[in-house]
Design a protein around this nucleic acid. Sequence first.
DNA 1: TCATAATATGAGCAATTGCTCGCATTAGGT
DNA 2: ACCTAATGCGAGCAATTGCTCATATTATGA
Lengths: 223, 223
Amino acid sequence: MAQPPTVIEPRKKPRQARSTVTVDAVLEAAARILQEGGLDALNTNEIARRAGVSVGSLYQYFPTKEAVLAEIIRRKRLRLFNGLTAALEETRGRPLEITIFRLVEVTISHQADKPGFARALEYAYSALPLQQETDDLKDGIVAAISGLLEEHDVPDPRQAARDIVAIVRGMAEAAGLRGEKDRAALATRICRAVLGYLTTDVAAHSRAAPGSSHRQKPPGRNR
Amino acid sequence: MAQPPTVIEPRKKPRQARSTVTVDAVLEAAARILQEGGLDALNTNEIARRAGVSVGSLYQYFPTKEAVLAEIIRRKRLRLFNGLTAALEETRGRPLEITIFRLVEVTISHQADKPGFARALEYAYSALPLQQETDDLKDGIVAAISGLLEEHDVPDPRQAARDIVAIVRGMAEAAGLRGEKDRAALATRICRAVLGYLTTDVAAHSRAAPGSSHRQKPPGRNR
DNA sequence: TCATAATATGAGCAATTGCTCGCATTAGGT
DNA sequence: ACCTAATGCGAGCAATTGCTCATATTATGA
């Protein structure tokens, strides 16, 4: 979304403790601004002011405003990746439902925070030349889930992994925007969608004749 | 996302033919800019230039830049709503699977277009005080689907409708961003997720004997 | 034909904002 | 204690951008 490919790489690495503090303060301030006011409210002067730092210092470590954004996205994405990986390890060998439930929980709490935040990051991400780099991370997530599915004999595991990621993200985001509070109920519903996706054969539905026939337990209480 | 609630209402209605042309040209130009360069590239001077109109004319009909954006969103949302409503009418009385398939198709083609566009609008929407007004439209969609589900004896139809919307939106958006071409395959997969959600009982999964027991065919008998 | 309302124009003001640069301060090793 | 590199500072420049206003052009109805 910018013709001259914006520079995104950090300008230099902090070598002393105080500069690390500066960098962290900047990122934290930027995150707060994003959370409260969205992308529109994000400008370098305000970031520096809130971080209790001068713009000059900010530009010692970040070549552009976008670089600040990019670093926030990088760190957040990495946290998600680590969380998912840990959940996968932690439930290795257990039934697929268990693992998926944990993955969903991790995604929900990652998504949660304040509503504007994830939203703004999501858009910023698509508008930034982070593409290659962060897509690698996304591919990592897909690959990990794909591996899991393969172990459980799910056909076309990569496509399924991508779809699952989309389902979970979509539902978690929608819930976040609506301000849903009950995470457990949300997790249950997302799992239902994912497991349903994995175990449903559309052809069977299409082949089946009748008109109205859809009774089940779902939405309300389960267990 | 703006402290002094930005004015969004159109400034005045065109009374002559030429002004309608102007308004349409503005909206069209803005849409093209959004599509090509995202929200960042959208500014009133550029809109006017591309529309072959002066900024002054633009401001005759739109009190703020946001008002232009809002009108684009309004029109697009309305098209979706009409499309979904038509699909519902058109498949009234037929099996639920058929109706859902049509709804999914409509959503996919609505989402399609260029990748940046829907994305930018989606973000802009959440950052605009359109909330009340467009949420009404969203509620309308949810209500319509909810009615459909109720007819088919789906429990907790409103929650289910919201979840379905989230699933479809999430998957369609992800596919759009990945640049997926095969709309039919996509529609099939989305339907699988939706129908799976509607017919899967999570409790059954939890109760079911563990291990790697995951082939096709759901645990709960469907039809 | 002509008066009035509707519409169109675009130079430019005021405000915002990304970022630089010259200089001050501090840390760490020797 | 001292020197150098690292870090910090913030006034302010240059560019962008939302929007106004004085003025010009065009349509419409009587």
